[in-house]
Amino acid sequence: MDYQSVYDAITGRHSVRAFTPQTVEKDLILELLNVAARAPSGTNCQPWQVYVVTGDKRDQIVAEVCALHDAARLDASINEQHTESYPYYPEKWISPYIDRRRENGWGLYGLLGIQKGEKDKMHEQHQRNFRLFDAPVALFFTVNKVMGIGSKMDIAMMMQNVMIAAQARGLATCPQAAWNHYHKVILPIIGAGEDEELVCGMAVGYADTSATVNTFITPRVDASEFTHFVE
């Protein structure tokens, strides 16, 4: 095996926040998902369902969620009606995680020239999530509600496979937990059953290499900082 190609696909992947409108062929999406489905899962239960959303349905989701996102600025009760089905982030942040979060946020906003307190620009940039950063394809990953937390781990490994396989095929991706707040809107549109829970969304397409935002690459701490050898 050419390990360097595998390493390059992993280290070359990053969250892309500007896409071209170039179409992604259905056969290529199926190819990626077939490769990604080799991800491990507890007792091989393969708990994932994947909805590939394009065209009018994609545009409908974008329009409805963006409208809610705008309305929530004037009516806070809208946010109370649209909450995530499971807590992705902690209720209380501690160091070093909050420090990394802040570094990430201000690094991105700084690159885009958005200063602290510029709420309109922050809102617009946050809404780019719900416009899929102009990607032509949205993937929504769901799991049956009867499944446990381990199934979300299984889906996370499958999603990583999708992103690495996409990288190897010249595609770009951006995993998006932001969609989870609007699962009540999304799930009926994509035809998911009432027994399904939205785990995560993902933008898929071809990166706009001319976009400044795509030069933003997040840092990683060295493995020596989080690795513990127990002998």
Rank of each mutant, 00 (worst) to 15 (best):
S77R: 09
N129A: 08
T83S: 04
H126F: 10
P96C: 04
T23K: 14
P219E: 00
V204L: 15
V146A: 11
A177Y: 08
N34I: 07
N34L: 09
E118F: 06
T23V: 11
V204W: 10
T54D: 02
G193I: 05
D208H: 03
Y109L: 15
T43G: 08
A192K: 04
P21D: 07
S15A: 15
T209D: 11
Q81I: 00
M202C: 12
E231M: 09
P136T: 01
H181K: 07
L32E: 01
D154C: 02
Y89R: 14
A192R: 03
G113E: 07
G12D: 03
I29K: 06
W48G: 01
M147K: 13
I29H: 02
I94D: 08
L108Y: 04
L32Q: 10
R131D: 12
D134P: 03
V230T: 06
G150L: 08
M147F: 12
D8I: 00
R220F: 08
M159R: 03
E84S: 15
S210V: 02
H82D: 04
L132C: 15
A203V: 05
M157V: 07
L111H: 01
F130H: 12
M153F: 02
H82S: 03
S85L: 15
R101L: 14
Q127M: 15
G150R: 10
Q22R: 15
Q176A: 07
A211L: 03
E103T: 13
A67C: 01
Q127H: 06
C200L: 14
F141C: 05
V143S: 11
T83E: 12
R131S: 14
R100H: 10
V143D: 08
Q160L: 11
K26F: 07
G55H: 06
V199E: 13
G191L: 02
Y97R: 09
L112N: 01
K116A: 14
I189Q: 07
T142A: 00
G205P: 03
R169V: 04
H82I: 02
Y206W: 05
D99A: 10
I217E: 05
G55D: 13
D56C: 05
Y89M: 15
T83R: 13
L30M: 13
